[in-house]
Write a protein that binds this DNA or RNA. Structure first.
Lengths: 249, 249
DNA sequence: CTAAATAGCGTAGCAGGTACGCAGTACTGG
DNA sequence: CCAGTACTGCGTACCTGCTACGCTATTTAG
């Protein structure tokens, strides 16, 4: 492991920028191998199954060998996070900003659903890995036709990322919870009814009485209707914003 | 620890529903004590500092004593999650739905910022604790004046929760990242410039050239401008939705 | 008073992260 | 060709943390 002068260590790792050294044995491992192995384990058995020992075992190396390539386990997790996203599909040409952003958002969710552990990792900083930045770039590019200033574009995209981030969490975390205790979901309405005092929770009691939670909630991992609903509301807001800004000019 | 028949164990815990037993020694601990101690430790030293041993020590008990009151550490974390939210401030009377929801959203963020570890916990299921449900209720109540159906209300509130969830993550996780490596933020623009190829990241390069990331990003934990921007966009969308629905009638 | 039920707790096992230092390896300059 | 050098892989050992298990002490019912 060798340093890149003016770059944070994990950023250098993700971009594959390491000063290659002439002397000494050739490394039998690369960071890419390690990350791939770690991701395969996480995909198959969950993030909790990713231990340095397990990763090393899968690569036929000893545990401590990994530390020549990765500063710490946390470091590894950060790199995994970027690697899991892969590159966005190329944006179809000639679509308006709104369909482009919907396409983009669907793309993120599809990418992330391939790695159900993704939402368990904390955001470690502003986007810095090649894949993260590629997604960032794609979203900004979608707004190119609109007359928005660069700064406004960033604002709109950050709002979108915020929404997606939340959606990721709800979708993936709830899917994990459902896998662990399906009965909590199927009996949700009954549980609420058992526990809620209509005087203390009037609005909720009203919803409950309307039977909204009645049919046993069979949680569907890939059900995007709620997601789309909220997303469309946000995009309606963006539309109004664009109209307002362009009118002022 | 004794069971509540038709309720998940953690739900019973959060609502303080445990069958009191007549025989045996009086408990010297309550779940509430344990949760309070755990939260105090997490607030002061971060979630990583919360170990069963530390919590027990702070209560003057042995580690294993805690397991009489809590099934596992994960169980404890779930209860902490609800407890941290506390009850929402009472909604001011006679405000329209929009200011009410802004008030609500600010309230959530304020509550959560008191416990910077909050975003690190996974969502363990649909809202079930008394505090979580109180917030849920408050948001639903804010939409009471509008002519929305109960189901639509739930949809709108879930969209809002999704957005807030994302905001929580970005705000808290980035704050934590900033505390750990402030230089990553201050040199963000420089890092991007160093790493980005304008041919592969055209839109991003354009933003960079416009100098949007120029001034050293001094990350501010409680800076709500980006948050408000996205929130207002979402609420604009909700407004349009309400108009549309009420027109149809 | 005896039995049952329950609280607190000591011990011990197991898993996981990683500091440290040694041994082997490949290149470099003399 | 050989010593020096920088590097890789890895075994050992330590520490922290969760928790199963079973013992002892305590309280109440009968």
């Amino acid at each position: 492991m060798s340093e890149q002068p003016d770059l944070p260590a994990d950023v250098a790792l993700m971009w594959g920028l390491r000063a290659v050294s002439k002397r000494g044995p050739k490394p039998s491992l690369t960071v890419e191998d390690i990350v791939r192995a770690a991701i395969e384990i996480a995909d198959a058995e969950g993030l909790a199954a990713v231990s340095m020992a397990r990763v090393a075992e899968r690569l036929g190396n000893s545990t401590m060998a990994l530390y020549r390539h990765v500063k710490s386990k946390d470091d590894l997790l950060v790199v995994m996070q970027d690697a899991a996203l892969e590159r966005p599909r190329p944006m179809p040409d000639g679509v308006d900003w709104r369909t482009a952003l919907v396409f983009w958002a669907d793309g993120v969710m599809t990418a992330v659903r391939k790695h159900r552990w993704y939402s368990k990792l904390a955001i470690s900083g502003p986007p810095a890995g090649p894949n993260n930045l590629a997604w960032f770039d794609a979203a900004l590019g979608a707004l190119d036709g609109t007359g928005l200033s660069e700064e406004s574009k960033v604002g709109v995209v950050m709002g979108l990322m915020t929404y997606i981030q939340g959606q990721m969490r709800l979708s993936l975390d709830l899917a994990a919870a459902y896998a662990d205790h399906p009965d909590t979901f199927s009996r949700y309405g009954a549980t609420l009814a058992r526990v809620i005092d209509p005087r203390e929770y009037p609005a909720l009691a009203q919803v409950l009485a309307a039977g909204v939670f009645e049919e046993p909630t069979t949680f569907d991992d890939s059900d995007d209707t709620d997601f789309d609903f909220g997303l469309q509301l946000y995009l309606d807001g963006v539309e109004r914003f664009i109209e307002r800004v362009c009118q002022d000019k």
